[in-house]
């Protein structure tokens, strides 16, 4: 089954219709490259998927769950949108790392916040559940004490001694009960936070920057910053990872390292959508290529179909142009 289904997606900014009905599907583990000239709506499409823009019409379905349906004029509940966003990760053209946090904090910040939110909820649930049980326990203890008082066979001295003993054992039981509650909460926290640091470090290693954990973004090159940004997007393990022209803001000699990292992710089962101007990358890495022009999908198919046997005139013209550009660069 397709992990992502987009149907009839439309988006206008004022009178300017940027997306005029986009339909496509993507299977788990596939890499989709979106190519096309500037202003064709590629970036807007990615932004609609990530809910940075709200589409006007159409639907977005991930794993069978309808995330967006233009037909249902639902209220924009920011809490709702926040949850839906987590299906997608986005790597920006301009990296957008948080400059005041070092590399590893950039990567784990969101995971920690989500972890805190979850642990607060789960601990509250534990508290609520245990509070009832504690009340029941206390009631039983009270009943036991009352039963002891009503026992006529005991002398006053015996009664006092028995009472003392019972109270002590009750107290111990309550302390033990509270300890178990605390242990349960600790277990929740351990499960949610225990491996955050390790996972962040693993992600750093994965993008080849394992030794720069403490570096601030301003101390890293553009290519390194973008690799950190990729690790940051991966930290929340999104279903679909989107790249918005990830190498366009980089010097030519730095694009290679970033493309290598993205290519490396392909061997995992990450599903990716890459908006790119790197034709070679699209041809070699993508499973599926979409060529967009004027807000519609002009042509869609395997890299071979698009690059070697394009049917549409627009695709042919675009590819011809980009080839000439590369050629020009080579001569220069």
């Amino acid at each position: 089954m397709a992990i992502l289904e987009v149907k009839g997606l439309k988006k206008s900014f004022g009178a300017n219709e940027v997306l005029k009905g986009i339909d496509f599907e993507l299977n788990r583990g596939e890499v989709l490259a979106i190519i096309g000239s500037s202003g064709s709506g590629k970036t807007t499409l990615l932004r609609c998927l990530n809910f940075l823009e709200t589409a006007d019409e159409g639907s977005i379905t991930v794993n069978g769950e309808v995330l967006f349906d233009g037909a249902q004029a639902e209220k924009k509940n920011s809490e709702d949108i926040r949850k839906k966003r987590l299906h997608f990760g986005l790597v920006f053209q301009q990296f957008n790392l948080f400059p005041h946090y070092n590399a590893i904090t950039n990567i784990k910040l969101a995971a920690e916040l989500l972890g805190k939110e979850k642990s607060r909820k789960e601990c509250a649930a534990i508290d609520a559940e245990r509070r009832c049980e504690r009340a029941t326990l206390k009631a039983t203890q009270k009943a036991e004490l009352a039963a002891l008082k009503n026992d006529d066979k005991l002398t006053k001295q015996e009664l006092n001694a028995a009472k003392k003993q019972l109270k002590a054992s009750h107290r111990a039981a309550l302390i033990e009960f509270d300890d178990v509650t605390a242990a349960k909460k600790t277990a929740v926290r351990e499960r949610l936070f225990g491996d955050i640091d390790k996972r962040a470090q693993a992600l750093l290693d994965r993008v080849g920057l394992g030794d720069r954990a403490k570096a601030y973004p301003c101390e890293l090159s553009g290519g390194q910053q973008q690799r950190i940004a990729i690790a940051r997007a991966l930290a929340l393990s999104p279903d679909i990872l989107c790249f918005d022209e990830p190498t366009s803001a980089l010097d030519p000699e730095l694009t290679g390292e970033v493309l290598k990292v993205i290519k490396g992710l392909k061997s995992g089962d990450s599903t990716m959508i890459v908006v790119t101007h790197e034709m070679d990358f699209a041809r070699n890495v993508a499973d599926k290529v979409i060529f967009m022009a004027d807000g519609v999908i002009e042509e869609m198919g395997s890299p071979y179909q698009i690059f070697e046997a394009p049917k549409s005139e627009k695709t042919k013209a675009f590819l011809q142009k980009s080839r000439e550009q590369t050629l020009g660069e080579d001569i220069a």
Binding site: R82, K83, R85, N96, A110, A233
Partner: peptide, 12 residues
Amino acid sequence: GQHEAAQVLGMT
């Protein structure tokens, strides 16, 4: 971009 990066990461 800072706001957007935070939003995409699911921050409130």
